[in-house]
Design a protein around this nucleic acid. Structure first.
Lengths: 335, 335
DNA sequence: CTGTTAGCGCCTTCAC
DNA sequence: GTGAAGGCGCTAACAG
C-alpha cells in the first residue's frame, strides 16, 4: 500500500504538506507542489478515500432504495439521480429491495452506520426498522414518485397524480366512454389513491357510476395487465375503456385484449402511465401520462444534498407537472 | 455522534471490550456481553462503517460500470449482481457511464482509492485511463456479457454468442430464408464479432452469399431498429428475414416494418437478442435468444470476490449456454 | 509556507 | 476475559 507517508518521504516534506499540495494547492509554493506531484506520480499514489472520509465524517454517498430494477421508469429516475449525484461529488449505492421490508431495513441502516450520508426512497414505505426508527429521526431522506406513509416529515418529489387521473378521464370521456375498468398497481400507496381520486372526481362531476368490481390488479407487472383483462372480461358489462396504472400493466392488457380478438381502440381503449420508452412503439402506441422521471431524480438529489448540508428547504413537497400523451390506444366509442 | 467510547463508559468497560462484544461475542463473558448490549441499546450506537473499513483496509463495495441503465437486460444482470453482492456482504456502487470513457475512468478509479474493492464492467472497454493503467495492473475486475478489449488478463462471463448466431441462422434457414438483413448494435465489441461470425459461418456452409450492404445499424436502441429497417427497405432486393442484435432494435424494427404495411412473419421475419421481458408481449411475440442475465450477474460477483480474496480462479472465461426462443416473429417464407 | 502534533472511530496485539 | 496502547491513513490546528 502506497500511502501519504511514503510520498512525503519521497518528496522530502511532511505528510501535511502532501495533503495540502493535493487538496489545497494554493496553500503551498509552486516549488513544493511540483516536488510533491512528482513524488505522487513516482509512487503511484492515490489518497485513500476511506481514510479521508473517516476524518471528515462524510461518506459522500447516497443510498437509493428501489423496489425493482427492471422497470425502466425507475431506472430513468435513477439515471437522473446518478447524474446529479456525480456532478455534486456523490456516489450512488444501489439498494434493490424487491419490495421487502427486511431489505429496506438493511439498506436504510447504511445511513446510520456512516456508510451513506442520505437516502432516496422510490417506494412508499418508511424504510427503517422499528428498532432504528428513533435513530432515524434526523436522517436526510427524500422520496420520489411516492410519499412515505404517515411521515409528514420528509420531503418528496412527485407527480400531480390527481390531476393526471382527471386528465386521462376527461380524455376518455371526450371520446364518449362512460364504462370503465381500472387495473391498478400497488394498492396501498399514495399515488394509487391520488390517481383513483382524480378519476373518481371526474366520474362524479359527469354523473358516472363506478362499480368497485371494475377495479382489479395489485402490482405493477405485465402479468397483472393480463390477469386484469381476464377478470374484467368476465364481468357482465364489458368496459369500453381501461385505465392501467403503469405502462407495464397496459402492455399486458394490450396483449391479452388482442389475444381475445378485441381491436384497440375500436373495441376498447387502453391507457397507461409513466411513458416508458417502448410504450410509443407498441401496436397500437400507448396513450399514457409522461412523468419527467429523469428530472425527478435530479431534483431528489438536490433536495437531499440540501438536507445533508443542513440547509433549510424552501418547500418540502414538490409536485411536478405531467403531460398527457394521446396516442393510438385510445379512440372514440364505436357502438 | 455516539461512538464506541461513549458506549464503553456507559457499560463501564473498555472500548476494546465493546468492540469484542459486538464482533466476536465468544470472546467475552455472558455478563459483560449483556452489559455492553444494554449500553449499545441505550446509546443508540451503530458502529461507524467508515472507521471499521479504514482499519481493515476493505470497503466491501464493488463498482459496476454500465453503459445504460434503461436497458432492462443490463438491469437484470445488475439484479443478479446486487443480490449476490448483498448475500456476501458487499454493496454495489452504481456507475452509469453512458458509454463515455471519461466517466468510466472516474468510476474505475474508485478501486484505486479504496472506495471499492473490485469492479464489474458491462461494457467492452478497458475502463481505466491511460494514466491509471499501470496502477490497475492488479485490480480485481470481471467483465460480463462482453470481453474487455485486448486484455487477456481479466476473467469474463459471457454467452456463447457464436453458437447463438448459428442457432438463429439455422432456425431461419429451416423456414426457407436465404436473403437476410442484419441490424447490429455496437460494432466494435467482441460480441458483435462473435454473433456475426456465427451467422456467417452458417451462410458459408449453406452456400449463402452475404452482401455487406445488408449489415446496418450501430447502437442498441429502438431508433436503430427503425432506421435500420428504412435503410434495408431501400435495397434492391428486400431481405426475407432480419437479425436484430438486441430486442430493443427488434422492437423498433417490428414497429417500422408494420408502419410500412408489412406483415410479420408472413412478409418478413424478425429476430431479437436478450429476451427482455416485453419481447414476449410484442405483436407478434419476438423470436429471440435468451441470456441467463441474472445468473451471469451472480456469477460475476462470485468470480470477482474470489479475485478480491486473492483466491486462484479455476477458469478465467466462462461461456454460458443460451436458449433459442422461437416465437411468432419468425415463420416460413411465403413466395 | 511548512512541520509537528493530535486526533477521527475503530480494531488488535500484548500484557495482566 | 479484559484493559491499555498503538496504529489504519489522513487532515486540521497550532506553532514557528
Amino acid at each position: 500500500m502506497t500511502n501519504i507517508k511514503k510520498v512525503s518521504e519521497l518528496a522530502g516534506v511532511s505528510t501535511a504538506t502532501v495533503s495540502r499540495a493535493l487538496k489545497n494547492p494554493e496553500l503551498v509554493t509552486e516549488q513544493t507542489r511540483e516536488k510533491v506531484m512528482k513524488a505522487v506520480q513516482k509512487a503511484g499514489y492515490r489518497p485513500n478515500w476511506l481514510a479521508t472520509s473517516v476524518k471528515t465524517g462524510k461518506s459522500n454517498s447516497i443510498v437509493v432504495l428501489v423496489p425493482n430494477l427492471v422497470n425502466p421508469f425507475f431506472m430513468r429516475i435513477i439515471e437522473g439521480i446518478e447524474q446529479a449525484a456525480q456532478e455534486k461529488g456523490y456516489s450512488v449505492l444501489l439498494g434493490d429491495t424487491q419490495g421487502k421490508a427486511s431489505r429496506e431495513n438493511e439498506y436504510a441502516s447504511m445511513v446510520l452506520t456512516n456508510r451513506a450520508d442520505g437516502l432516496i426512497q422510490l417506494d412508499h414505505s418508511f424504510p427503517f426498522s422499528q428498532n432504528d426508527a428513533e435513530l432515524a429521526e434526523t436522517v436526510p431522506m427524500v422520496s420520489v414518485c411516492e410519499r412515505i406513509e404517515g411521515e409528514k416529515r420528509y420531503p418528496f418529489i412527485e407527480l400531480d397524480n390527481y390531476a393526471a387521473g382527471r386528465a386521462l378521464t376527461h380524455h376518455l370521456i371526450s371520446y364518449g366512454h362512460r364504462s370503465f375498468g381500472i387495473i391498478a398497481g400497488q394498492l396501498t400507496s399514495q399515488i394509487h389513491h391520488d390517481r383513483l381520486a382524480g378519476i373518481q372526481s371526474v366520474f362524479k362531476e359527469e354523473g358516472i357510476e363506478f362499480d368497485q368490481s371494475m377495479l382489479v390488479g395489485g402490482s405493477y407487472r405485465i402479468e397483472t395487465g393480463i390477469e386484469g383483462v381476464q377478470e374484467l372480461l368476465r364481468r357482465e358489462q364489458r368496459p369500453t375503456a381501461i385505465f392501467c396504472f403503469n405502462d407495464d400493466i397496459a402492455i399486458g392488457a394490450l396483449y391479452e385484449l388482442k389475444r381475445h380478438g378485441l381491436r384497440i381502440p375500436d373495441d376498447i381503449s387502453v391507457t397507461g402511465f409513466d411513458n416508458v420508452k417502448v410504450s410509443a412503439y407498441m401496436d397500437p402506441p400507448l396513450t399514457t401520462v409522461d412523468q419527467p422521471a429523469y428530472e425527478m431524480g435530479r431534483r431528489a438529489v438536490e433536495v437531499l444534498i440540501q438536507q445533508i448540508n443542513r440547509q433549510p428547504l424552501q418547500r418540502t413537497r414538490e409536485i411536478l407537472p405531467f403531460q398527457l400523451l394521446e396516442r393510438g390506444s385510445t379512440g372514440p366509442v364505436k357502438s
